[in-house]
């Protein structure tokens, strides 16, 4: 008896597991970038202090950027918790699909009229629907959390642009402050791109 034909093709949920892996990798990359912003903001605060009165506004913005980096890290931690939870749900779907496929093959081999098979298939379909429902709910929560994080990052972008303007008033420190604010803008753009990728990922394919 050969392995059930359906099992030779990776089930749809296998690609859902791959999707979770991609989401996790993207989250890790954003967390690393947030850590970088935190360090950059600390350096910017010191630089603004050295620049004195000319960079007071820049100093305030650097403090805000540091707070932004910390908020972003918290957001990403909760996103990571969500994806960890979804691994369990996706695995449940994979197992249920595999069991249902093998049971279906057994039923086909046995011919019509074997008692109990209709009930067994109904139970399997119900369990699968429940697991898909849980996964869908998780997907919605994940998307909502990504949207919330995108709004936070918009604020980060505004802070970076304002820092650039403030850098222009930095007197002798202006080129250094300009460089720091350009770096801020670049890493925030990078985070935006990562969040766009995250926003497109779907744990459940419709």
């Amino acid at each position: 008896m050969n392995a059930p034909e359906k099992l030779k093709k990776p089930p749809r949920s296998a690609s859902e597991l791959t999707c979770i892996v991609r989401v996790n990798e993207e989250i890790k990359s954003i967390v690393a970038t947030a850590f970088r912003i935190n360090l950059m903001a600390l350096n910017a605060i010191f630089l603004a202090k050295r620049a004195g009165n000319a960079a007071l506004g820049f100093g305030v913005l650097s403090n805000e950027l540091r707070r932004f980096a910390q908020d972003l890290t918290h957001h990403m931690a909760s996103l990571r918790d969500m994806t960890s939870g979804s691994v369990g749900s996706v695995t449940g779907v994979v197992q249920q699909q595999r069991n249902s496929a093998i049971l279906l093959q057994a039923i086909r081999l046995s011919g019509d009229g074997v008692p109990g098979v209709r009930e067994a298939r109904k139970r399997g379909a119900q369990r699968l629907a429940e697991q898909h429902g849980r996964l869908r709910a998780l997907d919605l929560r994940l998307r909502a959390a990504v949207e919330e994080t995108q709004q936070l990052v918009e604020l980060g972008g505004v802070l970076a642009r304002s820092a650039k303007i403030e850098a222009a008033y930095g007197g002798g420190f202006s080129p250094a402050l300009m460089q720091v604010s350009t770096d801020f803008a670049e890493v925030i753009a990078q985070i935006k791109r990562s969040l766009e990728v995250l926003g497109k990922e779907r744990l459940v394919k419709d």
Binding site: A3, P115, G116
Partner: peptide
């Protein structure tokens, strides 16, 4: 094992009511 379940289930069902 898992791989032979369809064959065992079908042979069993041919001779008795699996319920």
């Amino acid at each position: 094992g898992i791989e032979i379940f369809p064959a065992v289930f079908s042979a069993l069902s041919a001779e008795c009511d699996p319920t």
